[in-house]
Design a binder for these strands. Structure first.
Lengths: 147, 147
DNA sequence: TGTCATTGTAACGACTACTGTTACGACTGG
DNA sequence: CCAGTCGTAACAGTAGTCGTTACAATGACA
């Protein structure tokens, strides 16, 4: 169970699932089932299907239905960055402004929004730049090298 | 009310509170009450006291009790970066690994943890670097310039 | 010494997000 | 037709944040 302090593991799970599909395909298989992926991730198949559904909308994965169905990559592992996955599954920014509008008659309340927005934009750019550096091919390479 | 998709507004509120105290002190006042700060932030005084309590533990603010009590800065605005605040109030990293340990008998399940950790470490460094660029003096300057 | 404004903190309900699970309809290869 | 898998709804459990009420503790000041 736990160990974390409350952060998002969705990016980890999504990268795990796609990398698993990629390795499975590289070994000659056609499709991977959510059941198989869930066994590797150690979770429920529905969790995998939900997540891969979002990745399909983003054009990173695809699925077949009916008998002998399952999941395939929509792109090569080398053409999928962690940024692609992040954008597919993370709806909003890391930091947010106030929930309730601060007092506009106060100088600070009036100007803090734009000031923080500028900083947060820079943070997002830096974060995305870091995630864009790594492709799933890189991730798989690291995994196989460590084995 | 809202508008956000579920992100942390704690850094925004904390920066708002400290900046407000700094401007208030610059205008000649001794201490700022949580009531006054809450009016500018548009929230409840207890929310401010809770947050400033964490900032006090980190050595960024200080408080006086009793009658005529309130809050003061423990450092000059120029000596407080957004990274200082972030570290004082954000308990964990942005991204987390799996909640449940993935299947260690699977190559991917075994190696994905270290591989993603390396990436996440880079993300944290980039994020912290961005936040360290801005001091509350910068924030206040932007606020006053825009007014 | 007494008053009283303010902090410190516990407690609670409301809201949101993610996770795990069950259930079942939709689809399709054989 | 049938069996296997996806697609998705529904629900409970966990966790974090926020707003709110309540009240004890503190300490400046009259």
């Amino acid at each position: 169970m736990e160990s974390d302090v409350s952060a998002n593991s969705r990016l980890t799970i999504a990268a795990h699932a796609l990398t698993w599909i990629g390795l499975y395909q590289r070994r000659g298989h056609e499709v991977a089932t959510s059941e198989q992926i869930a066994t590797s991730v150690n979770t429920n198949p529905v969790v995998i299907r939900r997540l891969l559904g979002e990745l399909r909308k983003a054009g990173l994965a695809d699925s077949r239905r009916g008998a002998g169905a399952g999941w395939i990559l929509a792109r090569d592992l080398a053409a999928i960055t962690l940024l692609d996955i992040y954008q597919a599954i993370e709806p909003g920014p890391v930091f947010a402004l106030h929930r309730a509008t601060p007092n506009p008659e106060c100088v600070v309340g009036h100007g803090i929004g734009p000031a923080m927005t500028a900083v947060y934009d820079g943070v997002e750019v830096a974060l995305r730049g870091e995630l864009a550096k790594t492709t799933l091919k890189d991730v798989l390479r690291d995994i196989l090298q460590a084995a």
